[in-house]
């Protein structure tokens, strides 16, 4: 009884605090959503006011057409999904091996991966571009996907390495006794890494979804291969910017990302914070 009361008291304070700060926190977010329903002059003059005077859906229509979202939506989903799957695939495999096996060059690889994590790489797009060109993959979806999933991943590898390293050895022992092959053991262990998988999926999906440099640069000869983040730049003209169209475009394009977060949040709850529940 006393316990319950104490936690209820905590909740009153904490929830109040979280609601107030939370509102401030997502206020800019709401502001974008509502700005997409305003006229451009209202958006600039309304200050803090959220609700538009007249609800105007034309921004969405314009955003969809002008930013080519109907064409780009498919590309965006494809790029984000493919890059995420590849990222997951390569970083989990690499992390698994690094976490469980000792082999020549292992320390060097770990050291390099760690070091590059800390080096800011400025304007690497040019060398990447030359590489993709040399591979003959310019103006193909494959080139974009490759570049999207190639440039990141050091952190993810370290995440998986650490995870597999901390799995209890008895697990592997019993797998071995059961006669599981290398591949079968990996198949058994991978699902245990759900929290890491969730982290990779969310961060990688989010960053590829919003990435505009790579999809732009590697598809210059074929504009129909671009994604929505590139399309968003259609609102910036030579002399003026269509901010309300941009806001509408933003609203359209971030909703799927939030959905992904909602879906995978389950894994977060279990994986990242689950320990507390036990």
């Amino acid at each position: 009884m006393i316990r319950m009361n104490r936690f209820s008291r905590y909740n009153l304070i904490a929830v109040t605090l979280l609601v107030i700060i939370g509102f401030i926190w997502i206020y800019p977010f709401l502001w974008v959503m509502f700005a997409s329903l305003k006229t451009s002059s209202e958006m600039f003059s309304a200050g803090a006011t959220l609700l538009p005077e007249n609800w105007d859906l034309s921004n969405f229509v314009r955003a969809w057409d002008k930013a080519n979202f109907s064409t780009y939506f498919f590309n965006t989903v494809l790029y984000a999904a493919a890059a995420t799957v590849i990222e997951l695939f390569k970083s989990s495999m690499c992390g698994y091996v690094l976490g469980r096996y000792r082999f020549p060059g292992r320390n060097l690889l770990l050291g390099l991966v760690t070091a590059t994590l800390f080096i800011p790489i400025a304007s690497i797009i040019l060398p990447q571009f030359k590489l993709v060109q040399a591979l003959g993959l310019l103006n193909t979806r494959a080139g974009v996907i490759l570049a999207l999933s190639g440039g990141s991943g050091a952190l993810y590898v370290l995440l998986f390495t650490g995870f597999f390293q901390t799995l209890p050895d008895e697990l592997f022992e019993s797998a071995r006794i059961d006669g599981a092959t290398f591949w079968q053991t990996f198949r058994l262990m991978l699902p245990l890494a759900k929290p890491i998988i969730a982290t990779v999926v969310i961060f990688q999906f989010m960053s590829t979804w919003n990435e505009f440099n790579i999809p732009l640069v590697f598809t210059l000869g074929r504009p129909e291969l671009r994604n929505m983040a590139v399309g968003m730049y259609a609102f910036r003209g030579e002399f003026s910017v269509d901010w309300t169209g941009f806001a509408a475009g933003t609203t359209i394009s971030i909703i799927p990302v939030l959905l992904v977060f909602f879906v995978f949040q389950g894994y977060f709850v279990r994986g990242l914070a689950g320990a507390v529940k036990q």
Binding site: L110, T114, L158, T166, L167, I196, G271
Partner: peptide, 21 residues
């Protein structure tokens, strides 16, 4: 199975690259 993932340090440790030592 979930037992193992929750009883261990999971995602926390990997942020460390020098874990091998």
């Amino acid at each position: 199975m979930a037992r193992f993932s929750t009883s261990q340090t999971a995602a926390a440790v990997p942020l460390n690259g020098r874990i091998k030592k």
